[in-house]
Design a protein around this nucleic acid. Structure first.
Lengths: 126, 126
DNA sequence: GACGTAGTACGAGTTAACTCGAACATAGCA
DNA sequence: TGCTATGTTCGAGTTAACTCGTACTACGTC
């Protein structure tokens, strides 16, 4: 019924400055595995994280607490790590903060359409 | 690298005769949950099953052993049940045989593009 | 009836994931 | 020096999933 599921909003790829901190360990584009990516996205909390990153991408450089997730810090570390190790997000260390953004280019190249499904997802029913 | 990942083959929806056996319990289209579908597809064996059903759909009415999966029968029952309960496949009882096919219409309506990713998946690397 | 076939149901062992508390590390600031 | 904020690591408890053997059902056929 909801047409938002059928048509995802276009994602604008923002240019990144060259003086970014090094990204944390992650799989390369060609190492991305569909089953691992799907597994990482098969969790409601992680879907919430990725969807929020996609829909509010212009403000992606926010600390972990920005997501407003009511979980202990160690749980959030666990889920962000799961997303990063599957290749869904990239994380960079900004001093104390660890900022995340979705690897849109890589995921669109390997699994076109997948991020549109995530963007159209809704936590409760359908 | 492989262009097969970017462009999935078109799926032809075959008309179904009206005298089919009743389908086993499954979620309705509007009940399909993305996180459950992704979870069901996050297993290599189940990806193999769904991909084989998609690519050789014209011969979908085969017994479970047709898939050539080297697992005990009870394991296969487990995985086919997981796929059915997530809404990925539909199963019908033909006498002794339980035949499965992918719910292409339903999945395309709710999660467009997802089956294309499955069809383009390859078991090992990239 | 006996046999083979296609598959389910149950139960147990094993593995993996999730969840969270507690302790720790680091940077900035008063 | 201490305090706060951000986030990690470790460990343990709990839950869920996978794997599989065994027993069972149902339908043909000989």
């Amino acid at each position: 019924m909801p047409s938002t599921l059928r048509q995802a909003p276009p994602f604008v790829v923002l240019p990144e400055p060259a003086d970014l901190p090094e990204a944390l360990p992650e799989p390369a584009v060609e190492e991305l595995r569909l089953e691992l990516v799907l597994g990482a996205l098969s969790d409601p909390l992680r879907l919430t994280i990725v969807r929020k990153l996609l829909l509010e991408r212009e403000r992606f450089d926010h600390p972990c607490g920005w997501f407003g997730l009511d979980r202990p810090k160690s749980s959030l570390t666990h889920h962000f790590k799961a997303l990063r190790q599957a290749g869904v997000i990239r994380q960079r260390q900004y001093g104390l903060e660890r900022r995340s953004h979705v690897r849109i280019d890589d995921l669109d190249a390997r699994f076109p359409g997948l991020l549109g499904l995530v963007a159209g997802w809704t936590p409760n029913s359908p």
